[in-house]
Every structure is written in C-alpha cells, then in structure tokens.
Amino acid sequence: MDDHQVQQLTEQISMTYFKKPFRHRAYFNSRLKTTGGRYLLNSHDIELNKKYLTEHGQKELEGIIKHELCHYHLHLEGKGYRHRDKDFRALLKEVGAPRFCTPLSAKKQTRNVRTYMCTSCGQTFLRKRAMDTNRYVCGKCGGKIKEMIKKG
C-alpha cells in the first residue's frame, strides 16, 4: 500500500463512518516509531505508521485511521478533539474506533554491560556506560577498580 492508496482509504472511511469528506492529506511517515498515527493540528493532515500495516494488517490500520479521523472531524467542528474529552470518547464509540492501537512487537536492543571489579575486596560493579577507573574507588573498601575484560 502506498500514500495514494492510504489517501483513498481515508477518504472512503471518512464518508462511510462519519458521513463527511476528508479534504486534507493522509500519508505514511516512516519516522513514527511508537504510535500508530497522528493528526496534525496545523495542517489537518494525518500521518500513519506503515509498520502497523505490515505487522498487524489492514484491519488495524483502518482502526487507526478511524481514530485519527475522530480527532480531525471534531477539531474542524470546534468540539473536544483530545483523548480526555467527552465528545472524542463518544465519537470513538459511535464509529467503533479503538482508543489505543495494538503495540508493535518490541525488538530487544542488547546493550553492552561493562563489568568492573575492586582489586582488594573483589566487589563487582555492572555499568551501562564506561567509567574512569583512575577517578573512582570502591565504595565498600576504598580499593582500586579495574575493568574486567570479556573473553570470547
């Protein structure tokens, strides 16, 4: 699905569920990471996350479009368009739009953990960031700290 098809789908959903035309742009934004889509207040455009289409399918994308169209139509009518507003919640229920989208599967990011050890008492320290061993001493005994080198 490309931007042109998303535009057509959004216009179709708007007429079917809201009985009002969608007169602005709807398109995919590849920079969206954690949200399914967003309604832009200044330009009245709708940006969508393409990952939701590939991971959850067109049904989920249609739900996201309905949700963003609720923001769109209420904002243009001067009614409460925010998540906490009664108008917004009522319109979500009326058109069957989800309040929140299904989360994307989280890709675990492995981060290097550095291990440091006290030369006198053997106390170990795990750190995500590098530490200047000349500047710090062991909090338990005051001994020198050295970084443990990983083997393998």
Score class of each variant (00 low, 15 high):
residue 30 S to E: 15
residue 62 E to R: 05
residue 97 A to Q: 09
residue 89 R to V: 13
residue 103 P to W: 02
residue 73 H to W: 11
residue 34 T to N: 09
residue 73 H to I: 04
residue 107 K to Y: 05
residue 68 E to P: 05
residue 68 E to Y: 01
residue 53 L to D: 00
residue 61 L to F: 13
residue 44 H to F: 08
residue 86 K to S: 12
residue 107 K to A: 05
residue 47 E to A: 12
residue 72 Y to H: 08
residue 99 R to L: 04
residue 45 D to H: 14
residue 93 K to M: 12
residue 41 L to T: 13
residue 39 Y to K: 12
residue 113 V to Q: 13
residue 63 G to W: 09
residue 93 K to H: 10
residue 99 R to E: 12
residue 55 E to V: 12
residue 75 H to E: 08
residue 94 E to F: 11
residue 111 R to F: 14
residue 56 H to G: 07
residue 51 K to S: 12
residue 117 M to E: 14
residue 114 R to T: 05
residue 89 R to W: 05
residue 117 M to Y: 03
residue 110 T to V: 13
residue 86 K to T: 10
residue 25 R to K: 14
residue 74 L to I: 01
residue 76 L to V: 09
residue 56 H to S: 10
residue 114 R to E: 12
residue 114 R to C: 10
residue 73 H to A: 02
residue 86 K to P: 05
residue 38 R to P: 00
residue 85 D to M: 09
residue 31 R to I: 03
residue 74 L to A: 03
residue 32 L to C: 10
residue 25 R to W: 10
residue 89 R to S: 09
residue 30 S to G: 06
residue 99 R to K: 11
residue 43 S to T: 15
residue 106 A to W: 10
residue 57 G to E: 08
residue 66 K to M: 08
residue 103 P to N: 09
residue 109 Q to K: 13
residue 65 I to G: 00
residue 67 H to D: 01
residue 78 G to M: 08
residue 70 C to A: 12
residue 44 H to P: 05
residue 74 L to W: 06
residue 35 T to Q: 10
residue 110 T to N: 11
residue 92 L to N: 08
residue 55 E to S: 11
residue 40 L to Y: 12
residue 118 C to R: 08
residue 97 A to Y: 15
residue 90 A to W: 14
residue 57 G to M: 02
residue 26 A to K: 10
residue 33 K to Y: 13
